[in-house]
């Protein structure tokens, strides 16, 4: 099995997948791409239908024997399937259910909100700095109409008041959910797991944008520091090339259209 991981700066889904890889002890080639400039679609990666229509949007891509795999939690599950002792997932079926349901909440509720706020703050200025022709050339190869539309909206800095309010509410909810969860434990599942990585990767960047969501949550603050200090996360963070990788987002999951 040959594996190549195309990843962006260690933030959001790229952080989850890089840290999960280091947790697993598996070997892959690492290739850095600038997800925020649509380099994923530059032609070097053999994107298939699944990668083109990833619900996660512009996350990292793991190419396994020529097939492009996406969606950070499922790449994490794959690492865990390949290295079952690595602890990315608990072994008990009920704990596994709880972890998958937890990650689903983060994917479906936190991620779209966090991505919308992060992109407006950091990706919009990057894209607005491109001239029209260069932007058009970068997004032309994107297959999914709805993803291409999100790129155009991101460049134009469009986020409706309703969507902004819903996005902020989700960041607040996620921060509270994690803080509550930590009342009797150090990690979300008791032991460290993929749930810590996925939650951290989306929530931590929000400290810069919505500090109010983090106020008076001492357990959350300690957990954020604990995850940041995890050797796999430290190793992923060391791959950063920018002074602050938090600015390296890319259009993420869409805000749910239907309940």
């Amino acid at each position: 099995m040959t594996m190549t991981l195309y990843h962006g700066e260690p933030v959001g889904p790229s952080l989850t997948v890089l840290a999960a890889l280091f947790e697993s002890g598996l070997e892959t080639d690492l290739v850095r791409i600038d997800l925020g400039l649509a380099e994923r679609h530059g032609g070097a990666i053999p994107l298939g239908f699944e990668a083109n229509y990833s619900v996660e949007g512009e996350g990292p891509v793991l190419v396994v024997d020529g097939e492009a795999l996406v969606d950070s939690v499922f790449i994490g599950c794959l690492f865990d399937d390949l290295a079952p002792e690595c602890g990315l997932r608990p072994t008990d079926p009920y704990a596994r259910w709880e972890m998958m349901a937890w990650c689903r909440w983060m994917i479906e509720r936190l991620a779209p909100g966090a991505a919308a706020l992060a992109n407006l703050a950091w990706t919009t200025p990057r894209l607005a700095a491109l001239d029209d022709a260069s932007f058009a050339a970068r997004i032309a190869p994107i297959e999914a109409d709805d993803l291409r539309a999100r790129w155009a909206q991101t460049r134009a800095g469009i986020l409706s008041d309703d969507h902004r309010a819903a996005s902020e509410a989700r960041v607040h909810e996620a921060a509270k959910k994690i803080d509550d969860r930590l009342a009797d434990r150090q990690w979300i599942m008791g032991e460290f797991s993929l749930a810590d990585l996925e939650s951290y990767a989306w929530l931590a960047p929000m400290r810069a944008l919505l500090p109010a969501a983090f106020e008076d949550k001492p357990r959350l603050a300690v957990w954020l520091a604990r995850v940041a200090g995890r050797p796999s996360v430290v190793r992923a963070a060391e791959l950063a090339r920018s002074a602050d990788p938090v600015g390296s987002f890319a259009p993420g999951p869409e805000i749910n259209r239907w309940g």
Binding site: E50, V55, D65, L69, V70, D71, F74, L78, D81, L82
Partner: peptide
């Protein structure tokens, strides 16, 4: 197979 499992999960999310 691990990649088949990944694909099954991907489809379910899609």
């Amino acid at each position: 197979d691990a990649v088949d499992r990944w694909r099954v999960r991907w489809w379910m999310k899609f």
